Structures are given as C-alpha cells and as structure tokens.
Simulated scan of single mutants.
Amino acid sequence: MKKYLPWIILVVVILGIYSYVKGINNTAVTLDQNVQEAWGNVQTSYQRRNDLIGNLVKTVKGAADFEKSTLEAVVNARAKATATTIDPTNITPEQLAAFNQAQGGLSSALSRLLVTVEKYPDLKANQNFLKLQDELASTENQILTARTRFNEAVKPYNNHIKIFPNNLFAGMFGFKEKAYFDAVEGAEKPVEVEFDFGN
C-alpha cells in the first residue's frame, strides 16, 4: 500500500488542480455570457431608438416648411450610429468610445431637431409626433438602464479574471478585460439652453 501512496497523492493533486482551473474557466464563461447578454440589451435599446427616429423623421417631413438641414443632420447621425458595431466577445475601450461617440452625435442631432420643432405649432400638436416624442423619452430611459446593467455585468467578469491566481489562467483561456460604458465626451459640461421668446 505504501508504494501506491505517492501515486494516490499525485492523482488527488492533479484532480484538485484540474477542478480549480475548470472552476475558473467555467465561471469566466458564465460571467462573459452575462456581459454579452447585457450588451445585447444595450443594442436592442439603441435599435428601438433608431427605429423611432426613422418614424419621427417621416412625421416631421410632413411639415412642408421644416428645416431640411436639421432633418438631414438627424438622418446622417442615425446612419453613422447604426454603422458603428462592436464584437461583444471583445469589447475594447476604443470600440466602446467610437460607439459612444456615434450615439452621442445622434442624441445631439435629435436634441436639435426637438428644439427646432418648438417653432411649428401644427407639428407640436400632431398626435403621432407627440406619441413618438413620448416613446423616445421612454427609450432614452431604457438605454440608460441597459448601459447601467451592462456595466454591472462587466464588473464581476473583470474582477474574476483579474484577481490572482485567476489572472494566470484567464489569459491562457483567452479571457480579456472588458470596457465599461463611460459618459459621452463633454457630458460634464452644463447644457446651454436658449429660449427665443421673440419668435
């Protein structure tokens, strides 16, 4: 029996190491899937906004004397925002910054459109427009929630793959740190609001 003891100890040690490494990998896979699900929810929220903006632009086009340049800015910003895509398995800070910038440009163009609408009483009274405006406000809240939940999903994943000794094995299995959503550049500055009561 003594001659088998070293082999038994070796097998137990190997099984212990295997079990530990397997646990690191499986937990990282589960957390990564949570991040990808959260990212899918972010994209779904942005897609809903893009769809609503398309309907909003069609409604606004009905106002014959509406500023063409304002509508074109929204349409172009929408096209740029939908063209910016990210691979959810490898979300880098650079990709997220580009995505954020494109979505921020769309938000800015949309804000200008909604401010310009104030000059058009018929459009402001249009029930379709009012409904779309309410849905857009609701969607912006959904986007904020989805982005917050994405960051909440990224944190445990990053913690898991960065703590020692998990970080030794996570790199071997191809797990990389994921980026968080940050505020759009310039969001810390106060918004300038101008009311033109002369018109």
Score class of each variant (00 low, 15 high):
123 L>Y: 05
147 R>Y: 06
131 K>E: 13
117 V>L: 12
101 Q>P: 08
129 F>Q: 10
128 N>L: 14
151 N>G: 06
105 G>E: 05
138 S>V: 07
101 Q>V: 11
136 L>W: 10
111 S>V: 04
130 L>V: 14
135 E>M: 15
96 L>M: 13
96 L>F: 06
94 E>K: 14
135 E>T: 05
118 E>P: 09
175 F>M: 00
136 L>Y: 13
165 P>H: 01
109 A>S: 13
157 Y>T: 02
169 F>N: 03
136 L>V: 12
176 K>F: 00
140 E>N: 14
156 P>L: 07
130 L>E: 12
176 K>M: 00
107 S>D: 06
113 L>K: 01
146 A>E: 05
155 K>M: 13
143 I>N: 07
155 K>V: 05
95 Q>P: 03
101 Q>R: 06
166 N>A: 10
128 N>I: 10
143 I>T: 05
123 L>N: 04
172 M>F: 09
175 F>C: 00
94 E>W: 03
144 L>R: 07
172 M>V: 12
112 R>W: 11
118 E>F: 09
142 Q>V: 11
123 L>I: 05
143 I>C: 15
93 P>K: 09
106 L>E: 01
104 G>T: 11
104 G>M: 02
112 R>P: 08
150 F>T: 02
128 N>P: 13
96 L>D: 02
100 N>V: 03
95 Q>T: 04
135 E>G: 14
107 S>R: 00
136 L>F: 12
133 Q>D: 09
158 N>C: 10
130 L>C: 11
94 E>A: 11
176 K>H: 02
122 D>Q: 12
168 L>K: 02
100 N>I: 06
164 F>I: 04
117 V>N: 04
104 G>N: 07
112 R>K: 12
129 F>H: 13
165 P>C: 04
131 K>A: 14
171 G>S: 04
150 F>P: 04
109 A>Q: 03
175 F>E: 00
97 A>Y: 02
